[in-house]
Amino acid sequence: MASSEALHKGSGPDAIRVDRVVHRYGRGGETVTAVGPVDLSVPAGQFLVLFGASGCGKSTLLRLIAGFERPTHGSVRVSGAEPRPGTAAGVVFQSPRLFPWRSVRGNVDLALRYAGVARDERAARRAALLARVGLEGTERRRTWEISGGQRQRVAIARALAAERPLLLLDEPFAALDALTRERLQEDVRRVAAQTGRTTVFVTHSAEEAVFLGSRIVVLTKGPGTVALDLPIGLPRGDVDGEELRESREFAELRAEVAHAVKSAAA
Rank of each mutant, 00 (worst) to 15 (best):
Leu184Ile: 15
Pro100Gln: 01
Arg254Phe: 02
Ser103His: 08
Ser95Glu: 13
Arg254Thr: 04
Ile232Arg: 01
Asp229Val: 00
Pro96Cys: 05
Asp120Gln: 13
Asp39Ser: 12
Pro43Met: 04
Leu50Trp: 02
Leu230Ser: 13
Thr199Ile: 02
Ser75Trp: 05
Arg181Leu: 08
Leu129Asp: 01
Arg164Leu: 15
Gln150Val: 02
Val133Tyr: 08
Asp19Met: 12
Arg113Lys: 15
Asp229Gly: 01
Gly137Cys: 06
Arg153Thr: 10
Ser205Arg: 01
Arg105Glu: 14
Ser247Glu: 05
Gly36Tyr: 01
Ser247Ile: 01
Arg105Cys: 04
Arg17Asp: 09
Ser41Tyr: 11
Ala89Tyr: 05
Leu112Ile: 03
His259Tyr: 07
Asp39Ile: 12
Arg142Tyr: 15
Val202Ile: 03
Ser41Cys: 12
Ala111Gly: 15
Leu48Asp: 04
Arg105Pro: 09
Gly80Pro: 00
Arg181Asp: 03
Ser59Thr: 14
Ala66Met: 10
Val191Asp: 11
Asp170Gly: 00
His23Asn: 06
Thr31Asp: 09
Ile65Cys: 10
Arg236Lys: 13
Val35Trp: 00
Asp120Phe: 10
Leu168Pro: 01
Gly213Trp: 00
Ala159His: 04
Ile16Gln: 02
Ser75Glu: 11
Ala193Lys: 12
Ala255Leu: 05
Leu64Ala: 10
His23Lys: 05
Thr225Ala: 12
Leu135Ser: 05
Thr220Asp: 08
Met1Ile: 07
Ala2Trp: 09
Ala159Trp: 02
Glu5Gln: 09
Ala193Asn: 07
Leu7Cys: 14
Phe250Tyr: 12
Arg102Leu: 15
Arg158Leu: 07
Val188Thr: 03
Gly12Tyr: 15
Gly67Glu: 09
Leu48Thr: 06
Leu7Glu: 08
Glu30Arg: 12
Ala209Trp: 01
Ala175Ser: 13
Arg181Ser: 13
Arg132Lys: 14
Arg119Glu: 15
Thr199Glu: 06
Thr225Phe: 12
Ile232Leu: 02
Arg70Ala: 09
Gly196Ala: 11
Asp240Phe: 05
Arg153Asp: 12
Ile232Asn: 01
Arg122Gln: 09
Ala44Arg: 15
Arg245Val: 08
Gly28His: 04
Glu163Val: 11
Arg27Trp: 06
Thr203Ile: 06
Leu61Pro: 03
Arg17Cys: 09
Leu168Trp: 00
Ala255Lys: 06
Val154Leu: 08
Gly67Met: 09
Leu50Met: 03
Gly233Ala: 06
Arg119Met: 08
Gly36Phe: 00
Arg181Trp: 09
Ser95Gly: 09
Leu62Asp: 10
Leu253Cys: 06
Ser214Asn: 05
Thr199Cys: 07
Arg125Ile: 05
Pro13Tyr: 06
Pro43Leu: 04
Ala53Lys: 13
Val21His: 03
Leu230Cys: 13
Leu169Trp: 03
